[in-house]
Design a protein around this nucleic acid. Structure first.
Lengths: 245, 245
DNA sequence: CGATATCTTGAGGAATCTCAATACTAGTGG
DNA sequence: CCACTAGTATTGAGATTCCTCAAGATATCG
């Protein structure tokens, strides 16, 4: 049987009931890719599908880390706050990404839905127990965490040493490459997050983000299309600008 | 028998020959803490002790990742470069830290000795093979990587949203806490790295680092003592300044 | 004790931020 | 179908932090 919808959240979307893990759109690229047959069924039996609307909080820093999640659709932002409200978004998650990774007793950051989102939720305790039984799963989780760490190091380079223009170009490239990796179109880059979120991700202000987009548009690197889409006119130039060449 | 010194590197220090893994000063806090008795012996049999002088490169970005390391003494910096030479130090490693963590085929960053350093070196291929045999080790490595990821997220908050003064205060606190965790004195903070390294770690210039130290000194928060030591006069104030209160 | 590297200090400049006003967009109700 | 509203994005002008360039001070090491 397929995992129950959590009653605290929104009504079940049509596909939520009918798609078993075997047909999960992100299974192959996420931690569940380590399972097959009976094991996959076992995973499914402890999973709950939960949904969030844009802007809803999934969990907050300091809360007891009861759950871990797989993103199955939508975009999520992770962020940390300073006491006066300054915010740093540490990452955007998309389908296939794992959430709650730190595996400590307490969440060390906030997670909030950027768009409408659905997640596959697990009890952290149960998943940790499974790690000892399924080394493959642990291996996969470890590998995913390592990749995240590498991405975090790239982001430190961006935050510490890149200019506003380089930051924006790097950001657009990241979105484009991520879409391509998921088999989506890489060129009209879909930007689901608002200027404030982009600013808080890149260590800038919304005004600077806006001005930089305008500058890239007037210099013929991009076109700002409707529906939060950015058409890259000169991809090679965008790549150069991202690295400061 | 204790692991051989690698002949490509400097002469064996006295303790290198005489201390078996069982007496390793960092065993309990590093990945090897997962082993005992025969298993520990097996780890030791595939380890090589290597030493580096301050300034020597341990490995470079883009190189084939043949080895992984445990730091047993000294301080190491990890950094990434932009094509024009701008540098971001992504972390400083001290005894007990693991190096080469990404476990990809290629190192994604540079590692260089800040002080004289000794490392316990392993073949990456062999360690990966051990991961399947010793889930405890994998669990430990995963846990260490998760901690590093959490630290990276803190550093993103620092780089993206903190002022120069907050950055320096956070940095001093980090060094102090790290020393305390290792059982060393926490108050005269030992700062083994030069101003340029601090600047490249915090996303500042050496001049700004220097000016900020001076400002903290003249406002009575710290004292600059000889031997790269910083005496914290007002720890509570330092903590407040680090968070922007 | 001199040479070299590192650190500190100063003056001016540039990138980015802040504050403020205007334009745009999407959703809502008439 | 259009006007209204609230949120979001853009643009402008001035302020500020931090950087750049340059010189002087200090520390380190043979």
């Amino acid at each position: 049987m397929y995992p129950f919808e959590d009653v605290r959240f929104r009504g079940i979307a049509p596909q939520a009931e009918s798609i078993p893990c075997a047909a999960c759109p992100v299974r192959e690229i996420t931690v569940c890719g380590a399972f097959q047959g009976k094991d996959l069924h076992r995973m499914g039996s402890i999973a709950h599908i939960v949904r969030f609307d844009a802007g809803q909080t999934i969990f907050s820093e300091g809360e007891c880390a009861e759950h871990v999640f797989n993103v199955t659709s939508g975009t999520i932002k992770l962020y940390k706050l300073l006491s006066d409200g300054r915010r740093q978004i540490t990452g955007f998650l998309t389908p296939g990404d794992f959430l709650g990774l730190a595996m400590n007793e307490i969440y060390a950051y906030n997670a909030e839905a950027v768009t409408q989102t659905s997640l596959c939720r697990f009890s952290r305790r149960r998943i940790e127990a499974l790690l000892d039984v399924f080394p493959k799963m642990q291996r996969r989780l470890f590998s995913m965490t390592s990749n995240e760490l590498a991405a975090a190091q790239d982001q430190m380079l961006l935050l510490g040493r890149k200019t506003a223009k380089e930051k924006i170009c790097t950001f657009l490239l990241m979105l484009s490459r991520r879409a391509a990796r998921r088999g989506q179109r890489e060129n009209p880059v879909i930007v689901p997050m608002c200027r404030t979120d982009i600013a808080d991700y890149l260590g800038l202000t919304t005004e600077t983000v806006s001005r930089t987009f305008t500058q890239l548009r007037t210099t013929g690197v991009i076109l700002l299309e409707e529906g939060n889409r950015v058409r890259v006119v000169d991809m090679a130039r965008l790549r150069d600008l991202a690295e400061g060449v």
